[in-house]
Computed example of a mutant assay.
Amino acid sequence: MFRQASRLLAGSVRLSRRPFSTATEVPAATTTHTDSGFMESWTKVIPNIDPPKTPSHFMNPRPATPSSIPSKITVNFVLPYASELSTKEVDMVIIPATTGQMGVLPGHVPTIAELKPGILSVHEGNDVTKYFLSSGFAFIHANSVADVIAVEAVPVDHIDPSLVQKGLTDFTQKLSSATTELDKAEAQIGVDIHSALNAALSG
């Protein structure tokens, strides 16, 4: 039954695809059409089970791309269990991308960036709020909206420097004494995270 459902659902998705361009926003009607096709196919194949929710259930429609560059960039900063910032208008955000620190201003080119352990800085005039991120992705849209999705994050002023030093020492010792590839990988992740935390606090 589920194999048949997956084939039908895959077919409905293929039929509803549209050419994609980062220069334009996907119309809200396209998302609605895709979801309605998904729901219709699911109901036909498995009428006794509620269909799963799709990402569009949890997201507001994106505003249209303005004809001129706005004065502020709108930031959504979310974790798996919380929303730190929601439609917050700020002057700039600096994102710890794997390619380096990336400053995002209004009118930034549409971009998808993978995040590395480091500091997310949110600038509002003279006020700067800093968060330490473990990893995640940033999606910069053509309409000056930035979505930052992190696996874990904490305000920098909530970090205890003594615990960071202890963690760095412990994981460094674990790395030097690790005997299996799994132990080495886990220890290396610990070293990388605590090294980034240490750099964040000292910087």
Rank of each mutant, 00 (worst) to 15 (best):
Leu79Arg: 00
Pro161Leu: 12
Leu175Cys: 04
Ser177Glu: 13
Ser202Pro: 03
Leu120Val: 15
Val145Gln: 11
Pro96His: 10
Leu15Gln: 13
Ala29Cys: 03
Thr65Met: 04
Asp170His: 08
Ser36Val: 14
Pro66Tyr: 11
Val75Met: 13
Ser144Cys: 00
Glu40Asp: 10
Pro161Asp: 07
Leu175Lys: 12
Leu115Glu: 09
Tyr81Leu: 07
Val109His: 00
Ala196Leu: 02
Lys88Met: 12
Gly100Glu: 04
Leu85Tyr: 04
Thr87Tyr: 13
Ser202Thr: 14
Ala5Arg: 08
Met39Asp: 13
Gly125Asn: 05
Ala153Lys: 03
Ser202Gly: 09
Glu40Val: 09
Thr43Tyr: 02
Leu182Ala: 11
Val104Asp: 03
Leu201Ile: 14
Ser83Asn: 10
Val164Tyr: 04
Arg17Met: 09
Asp91Tyr: 01
Asp91Gly: 04
Pro27Trp: 03
Thr30Glu: 13
Asp35Met: 11
Glu186Ser: 09
Thr43Arg: 12
Val75Lys: 11
Pro110Gln: 00
Ser21Asp: 00
Gly190Gln: 00
Ser176Met: 06
Gln173Leu: 10
Arg7Asp: 05
Ala142Thr: 00
His158Met: 10
Leu201Lys: 08
His57Gly: 02
Glu152Gly: 01
Ser135Cys: 03
Ala10Thr: 14
Pro161Ser: 08
Val156Gln: 12
Gly11Thr: 08
Pro117Arg: 02
Ile149Asp: 01
Ala187Met: 07
Lys174Asn: 11
Leu9Tyr: 06
Ser176Thr: 06
Ala178Lys: 04
Leu105Glu: 13
Pro51His: 14
Thr32Glu: 15
Pro27Thr: 01
Ser6Ile: 14
Ser83Ile: 02
Gly125Glu: 10
Trp42Met: 05
Asn143Tyr: 02
Ala10His: 13
Asn48Trp: 12
Leu105Gly: 04
Ser86Ile: 07
Phe2Asn: 06
Asp147Met: 03
Met59His: 08
Ala187Ser: 08
Ser135Gly: 02
Ile49Pro: 01
His194Cys: 13
Thr34Trp: 06
Ser67Pro: 02
Asp160Pro: 05
Ala113Asp: 07
Gln165His: 15
Ile112Phe: 05
Thr98Ser: 12
Asp50Lys: 11
Ser41Val: 06
Ala23Ser: 01
Leu120Lys: 13
Thr179Ala: 03
Met39Glu: 14
Lys53Gln: 13
Lys53Arg: 15
Pro47Gln: 04
Ser177Trp: 06
Met92Glu: 07
Asp183Ala: 12
Ile46Phe: 12
Gly100Ala: 04
Thr24Phe: 03
Phe132Ser: 00
Gly100Thr: 07
Pro110His: 00
Ser6Asp: 10
Leu105Ile: 02
His158Ala: 10
His158Glu: 15
Glu124Ile: 05
Phe139Gln: 09
Ala64Met: 06
Met39Ile: 10
Ser36Asp: 14
Ile94Phe: 10
Gln173Arg: 07
Phe77Cys: 02
Val90Ser: 01
Phe77His: 05
Phe58Asp: 14
Phe58Pro: 11
